[in-house]
Simulated scan of single mutants.
Amino acid sequence: MYELVQIAENSYYIQSPAKIGVVKLNDTDVCLIDSGNDKDAGRKVRQHLDANNWHLTAIFNTHSNADHIGGNQYLQNKTGCKIYAPGIDCGFTRHPILEPSFLYGGFPPKDLRHKFLMAQESNAEYLTDDALPNGFQKIPLPGHFFDMVGFRNADDVVFLADCLSSRETLEKYQISFIYDVASYLDTLEMIKRLEAKIFVPAHAEATDQIAPLAQFNIDKVNEIAEKIIAICATPLCSEQVLQKLFAEYGLQMNFEQYVLVGSTVRSYLSWLKDMGKISARFKNNQLLWERVKPQ
């Protein structure tokens, strides 16, 4: 873990729970794509920087989930590097309490206020095209989180952030976190058509052929959607839908799974309602979801 892997002339990644991209800008300067999940990840990154006599100029965060911005504060304090984050995610990066609050839907209990869901604050600036190094291109990747982006660099390496999961992860955990299901599927369809020398997903192996994994993720989304529709054959509240989905996949509930999968299931319910596949109604002061029967 935390090995430095070279994948092109000036492109590397650090193997970690969420891969950290490293791109050489010249003989001495480098930038990072994300920073890992905590201060310890930041320390491991700094060891690689020192070993190679590299100067860190900037961190480009793909989005604001804690496992991608957790090393920001440490590295910024130690190197003075700039930090950039896209759109709404810049606000979450500056104020990390927003992530567990958003997931929980209110002020989060202590069980959710920890490094896996709430990174340390860092002084992030809004990501603009002007902030990108020469040869960099920003790739919008909406769906997983608010304004997530990926990057293509001059080596024709594409860093894909969290827009897809590995087969192994999906087979083990079944339900990956999604904020906007419709945008997520659009992003995966776009990824299927994308070409590059090599693709680096944050949570899957680097590859020069990304389309099969993108399709596998699409198929899993559609499978989950069909299960939710079937579960809603009887009118149920979202908590009951969540419970039945956990039972269907043999998952074990805890606080983190409750907010991550719970938020995702509510996103599926919104998407399915907007498509006219399920309906919502209030009964006895309870919001119930029900499958729309074919005409």
Score class of each variant (00 low, 15 high):
G105D: 09
F145K: 08
S165C: 12
L272P: 11
L25I: 13
E226C: 14
S267I: 08
S263G: 07
S101M: 15
D38P: 02
S263R: 07
D156T: 06
L269Q: 05
L75M: 05
K78M: 11
I198F: 06
D162N: 07
Q209W: 01
H144W: 00
Y126H: 12
F216V: 00
D162M: 13
F102H: 13
V241L: 05
S11E: 08
V157M: 04
D27I: 02
P86V: 07
G42R: 07
T207M: 04
P140Q: 01
I229P: 14
S11C: 09
T128W: 08
F151T: 11
Y173S: 12
T169L: 15
F246V: 11
K39N: 14
K115V: 04
V221K: 06
L269G: 09
D38K: 13
E125P: 02
C232P: 14
A41F: 03
H48L: 00
I59K: 05
E3N: 14
N53H: 14
L49D: 10
D34I: 00
D129I: 11
K138T: 12
A182S: 13
N222R: 15
G106F: 09
L56E: 00
K19H: 12
N10M: 02
P96F: 15
N123P: 00
G276F: 05
N52F: 03
D50G: 01
D180V: 04
H63E: 08
N153K: 06
G250E: 12
E125H: 13
S101V: 08
G262R: 07
A18M: 04
F177K: 10
I228P: 12
I229D: 03
R94V: 11
K44E: 15
M190F: 07
N26E: 03
I14G: 01
Y173V: 03
T264I: 00
Q252C: 03
S267V: 10
H55A: 11
D40S: 05
E3H: 11
I14K: 02
S183N: 11
K110I: 06
Q137P: 00
K138E: 06
L4Q: 06
I175Y: 02
T264P: 12
L185V: 14
T207K: 00
D38C: 15
T28Y: 13
E125W: 12
G42I: 09
V157S: 01
S238H: 15
G71I: 05
Q6R: 15
A280Q: 14
